[in-house]
Amino acid sequence: MKQAMWAMTGVAAAALWLTGCASTPTVREVALDRAPISSKLEPQDVRRTVEKMTESLLSAPGVREAVGGTRPVLDVEPLKNRTTQHVDMVSITDSLRMQLLRSGMFRFVDKSTSGTDIEFMDAQANLGLTDQKKAIKPGQQSAAQMYLTGALSEIKTQVGRTVDQYYKFSMVLKDLRSGELVWADEQEIRKESVKPRVGF
């Protein structure tokens, strides 16, 4: 009987050893769309939002009407972060622009890199290194006809050990000439985390 107990204990210890219980952290690559690990905004939430917003914009009847077979020039403004978390809103904007660009429905300008454009044009005009016949002169860039903007907001509720976190991405596409909102949509995310009863 005692021998059996020892055997059982040995096997249990071996199984635990094989499946984990290491003192050093284990590092491994995980899927981009992994399961949530906290109630904070996580990369998979951002990826889902970008995909949802892109699909919504590309399939909206209002957008089809406004585009009307042309490829209007669009600028994507960084979303405003109204949450208490640090979220890289420029990165979200970049992902959104990339997916819309791949659809081929719009042409894009980027106001945020205009300063660099001026530096290049100045250098081409003034440094004497560039053939002036080939130098790019200011005043020829396309004008944005529409712009995409939005905001991220949150509501956090904590009751006892439970934290309930709600996020809302709101986005609008505005026609600069008419001032009309061509498209608007929002993505809501709600997460809950429960703290353990005993923890350090």
């Binding site: 021998q3 059996a4 059982m8 096997v11 249990a12 199984a15 499946t19």
Partner: peptide
């Protein structure tokens, strides 16, 4: 004993 050990291993896994 062996059956018990195998069952325990499977359950833990």
């Amino acid at each position: 004993t062996l059956s018990g050990a195998a069952l325990l291993t499977a359950a833990l896994a």
